[in-house]
Amino acid sequence: MPKSPVKNDVEKIALIANELREEIVRMLLEAESGHTAGSLGMADIFASLYFKILNVDPKNPTNPDRDRFVLSNGHICPLLYATLAERGFFPKSKLKQLRKLNSDLQGHPKFGSLPGLETSSGSLGQGLSQAAGMAMAAKIQNKPYRVYCVTGDGEMQEGQIWEAAMFAPNKKLDNLTWIIDRNNIQIGGHTEDVMPLENLRNKLESFNWYVLEIDGHNIEEIIGACKMARSVSQRPTAIIAHTIPGKGVEFMEYKFEWHGKVPSKEQALKALKSLASLEGKIKSDYD
């Protein structure tokens, strides 16, 4: 995997990712329901996207030329909300409203409820198609923006994902980057036990995607892969990001039981303590 010369940014982004993790734990504690493992696992990728890759402006969130970010597995929206707030799309004080009545922070993203949200999601498998639609719109309108779509891996058991996977290469959507959160878990267990996805790389390559595989906690690799995708012509790029569900909170890591569960007060304090001790210096097992 090629590395980009972004050393100075890397530490900054790692610190942000850790702050996002702390925010997620606080939000989920307050909300008393939600999805913990995937939200924590994708923090490095979201921090990299919103603080290095995406051409977005919180002061002009509907700029027609902005890059689009589509979250398909909407249940990890605590991370999206925390990231948007951190990036300045809305005040951080809103974050504690997650999942409350009359809140803009719905349990799954609702388009229009917050600046920076590009779609609605929840029912799995729809985001890649929506992202492909946005990428087609850029081609039709001769616009320079790129579209980034995050899906879960378990989500790829939905048939619609494969409809979109056929469509995007056929339409030569080289302005589309698909990031797959390959954390190997879903609500009912490990993906390879529930309904195997492997060999995932071969599947995607046979659909004519340009495929990269990265350590989803290595910020240089995340940024490097997203930059490389920009230079791929005539076909879309899929980045298989190997991540650890629950990353950063040791007692949650790798455990599918934390997919749809939130910590108790005691567990949250323990999690926050361990996150604080990391001080943004998360080391990946892939290092």
Binding site: S129, M134, A137, Q141, E163, F167
Partner: peptide, 21 residues
């Protein structure tokens, strides 16, 4: 042309509409 894929077609439609078409 989306091929025989109405689910994909509907969500692609949403993506196009959210982009101003």
């Amino acid at each position: 042309e989306t091929g025989i894929a109405e689910q994909n077609m509907a969500s692609i439609g949403a993506g196009l509409a959210l982009s101003g078409l």
